[in-house]
Design a binder for these strands. Sequence first.
DNA 1: GCCAACGTTGGC
DNA 2: GCCAACGTTGGC
Length: 621
Amino acid sequence: MAEDWLDCPALGPGWKRREVLRKSGVTCGRSDTYYESPTGDRIRSKVELTRYLGPACDLTLFDFKHGVLCYPAPKAHVLAVPSRKRKKPSRPVKSRQRQVGPCKGDVRKEAPGDETKADTDAAPASFPATGYSDEANGGLAGTLVEAEVGSADMGWGVHAPRAPCLGPWPHPTLCWQRVGCGECTACQVTEDCGACSTCLLQLPHDVASGLFCKCEQRRCLRIVERSRGCGVCRGCQTREDCGCCRVCLRPPRPGLRRQWRCVQRRCLRGRHGRRRGGCDPKIVARRHPQTQPLPPPPLLQPPESTELHPRALAPSSPAELIYYCVDEDELQPYTNRRQNRKCGSCAACLRRTDCGRCDFCCDKPKFGGSNQKRQKCRWRQCLQFAMKRLLPSVWAGSEDGAELPSPYHCRRKPVSARRRQPGPTLESPLVMPIALPGRAQTSMKQETGGSFVLPPPGTDLVFLREGASSPVPVPGPALSTEAPLQESQCPGLSWVVAPTQVKQEKVDAQEDWTPGTAIRISPVLLPGCPSKAINTGLRPVKQEPPDPEEDKGEENRDDSALDPAPEEEAGGAGTPVITEIFSLGGTRFRDTAIWLPRLRKLLAVNENEYFTELQLKEEAL
DNA sequence: GCCAACGTTGGC
DNA sequence: GCCAACGTTGGC
């Protein structure tokens, strides 16, 4: 990050201030103000500044945003000085070759009487992504500033519009007028053909739903190419519209054929998979709600055709219609990349409270930390994400798992090189590998000093339980009869409940947990099942802290058999155990088809809630 | 290669 | 405005 710190005399000698303009994302264009104390401490907010300076320092009159003291004077004079500062780019235009120019903030800053507003905060997330103004429209109104046009990393400009561009039209590079790689022949075409269905049907005027269309002759070939489906995934192989998704239910417009692909028929690997390493589980789940079998083909929806895109480039494409009719669903994976680490459904993701004890919590300011690590509570870090890191090949074995988003779309290291060394800062403490007695323990590296490693052959995954100190195998048959575990071949895993191995919790958490609280079932080895400890007598225990939202999905449970541990009662240590055996990927094992029916049979009594989940998983496969 | 540090961005 | 935390970088 460029260090363009400016002196901030309002705070005194040695204080520096800088303003950083957000370059991308839904808050693109927004600016953040940071301060640096004479001692080098970084301050991010007024609250932090107040905390830093202490209660004796009254910051009531201090305008944090602009770094000046705001005396109770007429508005117009308050920020006269800093307004010049604000015009300065917050940082060198290091990676951005294009300048926003008169767009947005600069214009707004000039507006009289606007000084007291967070005027650089011009990109509210809720800004409607409508108003694409193609030059065919010649439109000024509602032109939109694009976050990163033509970014090679982000997919050739497939970004949500961010903010209204108030500068003069046209903006040659920064508006949605030009979306694409800018290099292909289609991108070189400067005029609409006037003959394609888009031109004829005046689709560019379709801005009501935040969508836009473009002359077919000008559609970026690279994006169109990408918009094709893989042809393999379930989405591509689904031939019938579901008739019930929001696309199918979208009211048809008079004279126009529907242009958006049924959600159920969208490629699960396409945009998400090929670029990000796989489908977002949330997207998969959303597109394929397993509780709903594919509905019969809709009677009112004519078969989709590629007529809208007459180029021979994608004659058989199942998804070519999607591209230039991008909706929020399609944009989401790009604009919300930071969500990739949440499955949203595992117990860790559902957990609402920080443990307050792990190293990451201790680092949080609210727990008195220095905010250096800035990581999510270890007990809230997604289990699915952890599994993807720990058992990449297991995930790769399933259709969507094979393309699950890379934990890191990191430029520095390929996923293959990184995923076998998951760092402690990224893994959930709920999942870690250990070796079982009698197993080969070659190169086994238990969590020492915080490193979780992929289980080598002969080891098993362990579910850790918050608040204890050493792994405790679940009573019951071990996996001795199973073939030697080859993570890459047959993930025959025994699931063991183990206490937490979180670094800083080793010492102080022992008394918080006893093996008896970890699991109250008698696991059995299921024939054909990859040695999962399954309770056949009692319902599986999902030891989560009481949470109203979670309770919604567990209303029909018999809680009499589940006495949450005291720490859970207190909202301290909710720990997913058995439930997560499945949500973590049990049904993704390659021999699912063999053992799952048996499992279902064994669990036929009092396992309704499991059935639901298993069925969901099975459907997903 | 690991991981602490922190710039950055999403969301409330 | 503020906080949470994601994603990247650089030191080791």
